[in-house]
Design a protein around this nucleic acid. Structure first.
Lengths: 217, 217
DNA sequence: ACAATAGTGTCTGTTAGACACTATGCC
DNA sequence: GGCATAGTGTCTAACAGACACTATTGT
């Protein structure tokens, strides 16, 4: 009964973002095949209806197969569709935002290459991937104001100083230290790590309290 | 080359919301065919790759064909996918939120029936449509706090009193009159209608300034 | 005059930003 | 001591909520 209207090519594309050297990095791959052969593109792939339980699973599979890792945070962004976005014909792409901590990002060899988020605007990505990246950056910026999203760029345990840097990088503006801490306290998403109360760093300065995200339990 | 992975059934489903008698109403249709024959469902349909430029067009087509009207506001909500949501197999539904002014909603005959938004929870809608409605209600509530979304429920020209009622209905809580007006002034999305400065109503009370949304020009 | 809604003034408690100050480690 | 970062106190300006008061219509 569904035969009256043809089925459609469905893909997922994942905007993989990491945080390294106090900057946002976006993971891109070079396309092997036409169309857009040789151009930089978001990692993506067809939705496997036999294998994936849903498109979130597809995104996880893309991450694992094309990048070799699991994301710290994975959220559906938006769905792009149309005749023009792929020369092969009408397609739908369900896009996802994946955040990695810097350590995880290190481990990704494979074909992924990291670009500074500010440089990506100047690249001519395949398909409508420039637009998708733009949506991802805006979503992150918005969520930096009212959620703990930037914390997913950090390792499991971190200090408030590191966290503030992550927030500032995502939102693109510096924040007052005290204001930041008040805001985070009101979010009520962190818990102190009572064990080793300090975090010795290479530099000589006062050790800091270590925090982690509260377990969503 | 796409033949290695089967294409997928893609649909759009539209949560059509109107504002009547100071309550939110959701437009549902009774399914003619299996699956879920006879149950209430969101208006929707297959994406026509030959005919629609993209899924936004599909949503407009569904609105026009199944309901016979254009929405005052139309926004992509979220995409639902999976094997379980439709017994016929793996499918993807790109969902949209459509807002109608009460006048427009009147005109819809056809098969659409209006349900109070609070009653819809208790209905057992087809597919995962209960979940979709839930997402729509939450999205509207969130946007009532920082956008002019509730204004799209009203006719082109309206008073601040009517607008406040719309905001209160969407957000589910009463607001102070002065606070509301300050907030809206800061949004800077309204303009006075200078022509007939007042709006005579049936009841005897002070006439009000008439406003409209600023043209997005 | 009275009912009903429109529109504004004012007070107050809360919050965000700015900035200074103290604390604690390493060299 | 000096430097670097952590952590906190305090003042102030901005803002939101509560509430009262005036304004303008119809009956």
């Amino acid at each position: 009964m569904n035969s009256e209207f043809p089925k459609i090519d469905c893909t997922v594309d994942v905007v993989i973002v990491a945080y390294q050297e106090e900057a946002l990095k976006i993971g891109l791959i070079r396309r092997h095949d036409e169309p857009y052969q040789g151009q930089w593109a978001l990692p993506g792939g067809y939705v496997h209806a036999q294998e994936d339980r849903n498109t979130l699973d597809s995104a996880k599979r893309v991450l694992l197969s094309k990048v070799g890792l699991k994301a710290n945070y994975l959220e559906q962004l938006y769905s792009f569709s149309g005749l023009e976005r792929d020369p092969r014909g009408f397609s739908i792409s369900v896009t996802y935002l994946a955040l990695l901590s810097s350590q995880e990002a290190q481990d990704s060899e494979l074909e992924l290459r990291w670009f500074d988020a500010k440089e990506v605007k100047d690249l001519r990505l395949a398909f409508d991937h420039n637009e998708i990246v733009q949506v991802a950056l805006e979503r992150m910026k918005a969520k930096a104001y009212y959620t703990e999203l930037p914390a997913f760029f950090l390792p499991e345990e971190f200090t408030l100083g590191q966290l503030q840097k992550a927030y500032e990088t995502v939102s693109g503006q510096v924040m007052d230290k005290h204001t930041f801490r008040r805001h985070l306290k009101s979010l009520d998403v962190l818990e102190k790590v009572w064990g080793q109360l300090y975090q010795p760093q290479g530099t000589g300065s006062r050790p800091a309290q270590v925090y982690r995200l509260k377990t969503p339990a």
